[in-house]
Amino acid sequence: MVDATSGAAPLNGDPGPRYDEAPIIEVRDLTISYGRTPALRDITLDIYRHEIFGIIGPANSGKTTFLRALNRMDEFNPGMDVDGTIRINGKDINDWRNVYALRSRIGVVFPLPVGLPLTVYENVAFSPRLRGIRKKAQLDEVVERCLTRAALWDEVKDRLDSLGSLLSGGQQQRLTIARALSQEPELLFLDEFSIAVDPVTTMRIEDVLKELRSELTIVLVTNLVQQARRLADRTAFFLTGELVEIGATEDLFERKVEDERTTGYIEGRFG
């Protein structure tokens, strides 16, 4: 059996989620459609600083679409129609004059690792370079720090100059996490990051995430119910574009739910 206590256990010096402060992400009446087909309907929720916020639900329930809307990636998806309000740090994301600065505050990790066709080093140094960091020493420092925090440094420190795509799947996924961290983000979005990663690496990444919680806010989209249970402080359940349930992860797994479908999904009766 899995450990009964849900959510990441607070580590030393980690005070945990700040439910008493203003939320970092506020979503109000968010409806997204592709053409005439609605992908997400009337989502309203808050995400607080320093929490790991889990989103679970079967395929096509709008989880990925939700993440894309948060950093205004709809710009690159013609036909994706976003309606409603999203505020990050209290500021409507559509009010940002420089949307690229907004995106640079948000690190994103995809289901399949996307190593840029660059060396390991250049993958991690990419974002710092965009921000105008040129000094080799400074870049070296960022690369080592981010790779270390993604639990990859020891494995790649001797092959920083080989192509990122030559690493194993699990290593590549940690490389993309290191790359996301190199943005020095306030928010980290993970979209089913473990789909192509072996269980041992998954566990290592989960440990990394638990440590990161003290520094940033994590939105974890996952198709593994137990992963949400292990990591998330609070969890939302999306089903066919609707927010069915939201609450403390513990409550969801203790069946303190408002909707029967939540229990059904968690217990694996569908999905």
Binding site: R49, N89, G90, K91, R97, A101, L102, R105, E186
Partner: peptide
């Protein structure tokens, strides 16, 4: 932290180059 984020919302050289 909200202040930092807002401070970052400047149209920089990269933004104008892109335009």
């Amino acid at each position: 932290m909200a202040a930092t984020a807002a401070a970052m919302d400047r149209r920089d050289l990269a933004w104008y180059t892109d335009r």
